[in-house]
Design a protein around this nucleic acid. Structure first.
Lengths: 122, 122
DNA sequence: TACGGTACTAACAAACATGTAAGTAATGGC
DNA sequence: GCCATTACTTACATGTTTGTTAGTACCGTA
């Protein structure tokens, strides 16, 4: 996520992945916290501190890293207000907003099958 | 994928992820090669050797690992025929087949935005 | 008896992702 | 001057995933 590209096969394979539309898309949302953040921002624009409060189990470092990566990928827009103390707001780009219905279906899939498995376990 | 569960925060966070329907679903298809394999098996049942030929850049080890993980997760069904040399066939379960339309949409998203980005780069 | 084909497995190494802990800058309020 | 607040950054430690290489079992065929 931060530093990248060094060895050969690993990177070569990454390129293969990026050449496929499907895996390209999945890679964009592949970080541990990205989807959670995206689906939160779907509802409303949020400050860094709000996100921090919302996801109290994510460290600041991770929050920053994932937000930055998503900014780079054009999924979130970051707005800095020149105030002290600083204020920074994050919101989805249109590109990311298009994930909305997909997330919903994934969530439905998860809900359906998670319940089945939990039931089987009992 | 192979060995798991050791440290505390990492695992605790994993549990948080699994409690959310959305991230639960995404986690199931999160391995580097899982989606590619799934979308191939979507078309037809395949032998191990066929998959190996199809994905010549994936090592046997990785292919095995990802297939096994998906078998555990109920995404693929593995059938062993008691022959020599051995024959093993993999096919999607219903559960995995339900990903079909979602994959299609993800792929469309990827196609759309990958083109935009490529264009911008020129 | 050596060889080929299939579907693996084991031991090891490298790369990558995540988490921990502490520190920074700027400024308004006390 | 000292502290609090916000949004980070840095250095380090740990954990996980992926890739490399070699080896296994089985039996039919040459």
């Amino acid at each position: 996520m931060a530093t990248r590209k060094k060895n050969s096969t690993y990177t070569r394979n990454e390129n293969i992945i990026i050449e496929c539309d499907l895996t390209y898309a999945v890679n964009k949302i592949g970080g541990r916290w990205k989807i959670l953040i995206l689906s939160k921002l779907e509802k409303k624009k949020m400050r860094f501190s709000e996100l921090k409060k919302e996801f109290c189990y994510i460290t600041e470092r991770m929050l920053t890293l994932q937000l930055r990566a998503m900014e780079q990928d054009g999924l979130v827009k970051r707005t800095v207000y020149a105030e002290v103390p600083p204020r920074v707001e994050y919101e989805l780009t249109e590109m990311a907003a298009e994930f909305g219905p997909i997330f919903k279906q994934l969530s439905e899939w998860g809900g359906k099958h998670r319940k089945l498995i939990t039931k089987e376990a009992n």
